[in-house]
């Protein structure tokens, strides 16, 4: 999950670039013929992707919203509008609230820790340490392993470690479960965020740092007054990714604790999907999913707006 979302944002940002360049190129060099045929044929290129986006995302999304207002249903064509009952049920579901607070706490802790660690490592690895390329690769690698596999692997590691000083296992105690998830996510995501920070740090103009040095700035002054304001765009991206990833976390949660003990380590996404398996709670799960979407979208946008304000122009 986390991989796809971060991958997608990378792609859109990269995709966003070429047209700008092309525009310049075509308007200066090529005739308006090329432009016209491009306009004529662009649907052939965009069409398939656009169609699959509608089939795979827009349509199910709209249908999901519709179903959240329906009464108990077994097949979708049997669903009938009922009103806001599912939303009332969702808001009075204790497990949903528990999941919400658990997830919120998890998100806060993981956003802070991941970004602090990732930035520190990135900073260390841009100081010209020997073998920093090797370190970058090694730190990035955990990101290549899928969440389910990671969950099962780490559950074995944690159980082995816990065995040294307690008779309880990871799934017996929600505190262990919480920190287990945090450690797992750190291990997986720090490397990825580190790469983004490294790129940001390398983009800080050397003359700025040199100027700061000449002006007599100390190392920490340079870091906080020059470097960090200049890497704000990286911080924006990284906080956005970690925040949304933490809220949407599903496979790692499923594989590591599965919500045990007694749904106490169940995060929002898992809580929603567990509700879908039972016909009686299906509509409610759908309503929860809509609430979840609105919440994560609002949070993401708010965060982007807040950190963007801090970005400096070069």
């Amino acid at each position: 999950m986390s991989n796809t979302s971060s991958g997608a944002s990378v792609k859109t940002a990269v995709d966003g670039k070429p047209p700008k360049k092309k525009k310049v190129k075509y308007s200066s060099g090529h005739s308006s013929m090329t432009k016209r045929s491009l306009r004529k044929w662009c649907w052939l290129f965009i069409g398939p992707v656009f169609a699959s986006f509608i089939i795979g995302f827009i349509w199910p999304f709209l249908q999901g919203i519709y179903l959240s207002f329906c009464g108990k249903f077994n097949i979708i064509s049997n669903a009938h509008l009922q009103g806001f009952e599912n939303y009332v049920k969702a808001f009075s579901d204790e497990t949903f609230f528990h999941s919400f607070w658990f997830t919120a706490l998890f998100a806060v802790v993981s956003v802070v820790l991941i970004n602090l660690l990732a930035f520190s490592i990135a900073y260390a690895l841009t100081q010209g340490v020997k073998g920093s390329n090797l370190f970058r690769t090694v730190f990035f690698m955990p990101n290549l392993i899928g969440g389910i596999v990671l969950g099962y692997l780490w559950s074995m590691i944690f159980d082995g470690l816990l065995d040294l000083w307690t008779s309880q296992n990871l799934v017996d105690n929600e505190v262990y479960g919480f920190w287990g998830l945090i450690i797992l996510l750190l291990w997986q995501q720090v490397g990825y965020m580190m790469i983004i920070y490294i790129a940001g740090l390398q983009a800080v103009p050397d003359d700025m740092i040199e100027a700061a040095k000449i002006d007599g700035a100390t190392k920490s002054q340079t870091l906080f007054r020059v470097i960090i304001p200049n890497v704000m765009p990286s911080i924006t991206i990284c906080t956005f990714l970690t925040l949304t990833n933490s809220f949407k976390l599903y496979d790692q949660n499923l594989a590591l604790t599965g919500g045990k003990p007694s749904r106490l380590t169940e995060m929002l996404a898992l809580n929603i999907s567990n509700g879908y398996s039972n016909m009686a709670t299906r509509g409610m799960a759908q309503a929860k999913a809509v609430i979840f979407f609105i919440f994560v979208a609002a949070l993401g946008i708010a965060q982007l707006a807040a950190t963007r304000k801090k970005e400096v122009q070069q």
Partner: peptide, 15 residues
């Protein structure tokens, strides 16, 4: 422009 800047970063990311 922050947008452009971000693309720069990403290019470096992909290196």
């Amino acid at each position: 422009m922050p947008g452009r800047y971000r693309v720069n970063i990403l290019e470096k990311v992909i290196n």
